[in-house]
Amino acid sequence: MVSDTNPVKLEIQNLTIRYGGQAAISGVNLSIREHEIFGIIGPANAGKTSFLKAINRMDMFDSNMRVEGNILFNGQDVRKLRNIYALRSRIGVVFPLPVGLPMSVYDNVALSARLRGIKERAELDLIVERCLTRAALWDEVKDRLDTLGSLLSGGQQQRLTIARALSQEPELLMLDEFSIAVDPVTTMRIEDVLKELKSEMTIILVTNLVQQARRLADRTAFFLDGGCVEVAQTEALFTQQTRDPRTRDYVEGRFG
């Protein structure tokens, strides 16, 4: 369990996100502490993905997306940063649709290190092997590191995307329904890795599997219709100590 004395990694104040006139998130307040796994559960269209997009400023890629409120990363407002790329390099993201870049598997995972200026082959080799192993992909691709990442199977591309995010050595790792294209056994392996990674980074885990949140998250937030219904210690949510009846209904599978 994460102590309340851990420093705050990410502070969300009164966050509202709109697409055109439609609000995807409205008035959300949250704080996420260092070295915790923070789960976000909720039905489709609850605003979970938009929430992640706002954190690493993906709203810049979408002229429709409007963000209001404050997002403080290490105490700095991400919308007032001078170097947005430095922010993104510290945040790893994995979205449900896997993207293997059209370069070799090796280059996919070495890319982030190369962007940071690491050129030495031995060092790159080490990073590639470590990240692919953690993403439970190493055994499958170690003999064909030169195949195109974009030609791997969907599940492999998903793990490649995770490996790439890990290769950033991020301070914050955001996973959005990462297990959607991955088989249950591999999902379990990755979940074990996430538990280990907690000592190195902060993790936000958006998931549609409530049991996954229960297995992994220290605290969990329940999102519904663009609002954050409640945030609580995960065990509390799952042992009927919820404040809001809607949360209990969702956790117990009565809707969603």
Partner: peptide, 10 residues
Amino acid sequence: FREACWNMGA
């Protein structure tokens, strides 16, 4: 592909 790359801080 671009978005994936931007997301890594490129």
